[in-house]
Amino acid sequence: MAARTPDGPQQDTVRSLLAELWRDRLQPSRSGSGRETPAGRLIHGALFVTATLSAFVTIGIVLVLIFETVEFFREVPFIDFFGSTKWSALFAEKQFGVWALVWGTGMIALIGLAVAIPLGLMAAVFLSEYSPPRLRAIVKPILEILAGVPTVVFGYFALLSISPVIRDIFGQDVGIYNALSAGIVVGLMIVPIIASLSEDAMRAVPRSLREGAYALGSTRMEVSLRVVLPAAFSGVVASIILAFSRAVGETMAVTIAGGGNPQFGVGPLEAVQTMTAMIVQLSLGDTPTTSIEFKVLFAVAMTLFVLTLGMNFIAQWVSHRFREEYE
């Protein structure tokens, strides 16, 4: 190299210029990882704003819900909302007992879980422990696609396919709108969540644990159910809680198939109304924004928000707190 670039006056000039440049560049930077140009700083700032946007979305949701909810509780006492089981928001004599909606929500979500837990866990155990990799490579994307089917489609299933079957089984005096058909499709909807998340948790169980169990003379089922499943328990529970939260927040299918009957204590073969369905019902009508019906919509939404948020937090806590740490 030296031979090709003999030192000369020109070279010296270049060198000093470069030195100038580098001295400037080599100033210690505040960020610690390279100097940022003004444009770079601008980009940094813009990206920061986009990242904080999600926080503002949360704040926005909370503010919007709180604002109208407070308005609502100015007109309706707290006890009438949380202490009553009668709901008749659209009648002349208005009652706002949220328990009537919680009953419908809870029943549909529980029916959904009753369908989804056995199916989802079986699918998860099968995919993680039994399935040959090829079959798994086919089934897993199908589950993902299933999770992406719009909820109106499930509503169609519930109302026009499952409900007639239920009426064939339980007799024609069962209404076309009933909690059972809505619950079953909600269950089908959350199967992919349970199956997929539980399978992830089970596959995260180290291979060495399985080998240890096999080496003691366990059958595949004993390894699956007595070693892998308990070891992945926190992930499985978290997936079930998340699925429950999804079932509680599910809207269209339960609106279409659940019927509009907000009553506390009705059975699974009768029409019910969930919190989400109530919100849809009130939104579909032309509700004046100053009316009590409009405000109760937000009070119900607030209840729903707190419930689902709480469940999501519990799920996160469970999966962190009870996770087994393997080396």
Partner: peptide, 29 residues
């Protein structure tokens, strides 16, 4: 495998109690 047991390179106790770890194989068998 029941009659020819195995101990692995890395210790791999089950995430259960010490008692259950030892009793596991006996239980299933």
């Amino acid at each position: 495998r029941r009659r020819i047991g195995m101990v692995f390179q890395k210790p791999n106790p089950f995430p259960k109690s010490i008692y259950e770890n030892v009793a596991f194989g006996a239980r299933i068998n």
